[in-house]
Nucleic acid binder design. Structure first.
Lengths: 124, 124
DNA sequence: GTCAAACTACGAGAGATGTCGAACAATCCT
DNA sequence: AGGATTGTTCGACATCTCTCGTAGTTTGAC
């Protein structure tokens, strides 16, 4: 499609609405190290980040896969912005459904990171 | 083995010590509906429960599998008591490692249960 | 229109996972 | 010892998951 589109970005991505988000899916989405790392970084920055911002030790197609799992489970929201795809935590939705859950997971990641000598990333 | 054993129960089960428990593994263990159900019930009762107490819609071998995943990830502690195998949440360990995490998950399960019309189990 | 950048889609492969059924093992009770 | 209860082990199978590489699409810039 090359036709103009009314509202800004042409490509729309399927997201579960708040009520459709399932705890099991969220837990599963968070149970992968790569995805946990993504979520951790999104929370630390507290803002949208493009996919390319993340320097994961996997290929781009694998990265795409992980972001999709996070989106389809309802953990993040993705929107296209030019050629970039921006990602943001769905903090409000998750907190409305599962109060305190996301925060405790984020705290747990940090804690565990500190506990196991944080293999710090090469400064970018 | 039929020889007497000094400390009570003969068969010993491998458990991760507190420091070995990984968040990813716990999240994965909790991401299955059957296992979430088990954990929910253990928390509700607040005490040890035998495997046979649970009336899961799967075979015994599958049940064994789920309990093992929960034990190996550090979510529950299992001990033999006669022919029965007793299961208890490792609440203290989890709370020491990931403060508030378990409680928020338990609350989330309950909440989601209520939210989606609780297909209540046939009274046992 | 062309080119580079950022992602996606598709196909494939290795490995994990959830499930079952049948046979086995440990413990308790009589 | 014999039988009942509880849970395990093993092999099998279908499915899912994570990963990659290559080829393709969409967008922005020149």
């Amino acid at each position: 499609m090359t036709t103009a589109d009314p509202a800004g970005s042409s490509r729309d991505l399927p997201h579960p609405v708040r009520e459709e988000i399932r705890l099991e899916s969220v837990l599963h989405a968070l149970s992968d190290p790569m995805r946990l790392r993504i979520v951790r970084e999104l929370a630390a920055v507290g803002d949208e980040l493009s996919c390319s911002h993340f320097d994961l030790p996997v290929t781009k197609s694998t990265t795409t896969h992980h972001f999709r799992v996070l989106r389809e489970s309802g953990v993040i929201r993705q929107v296209y912005r030019g050629t970039a795809k921006m990602n943001a935590l769905r903090g409000a939705d998750l907190d409305a459904l599962f109060p305190g859950f996301l925060d405790s997971v984020l705290a747990a990641i940090e804690r565990q990171g500190e506990r196991l000598g944080e293999p710090r990333r090469p400064a970018g």
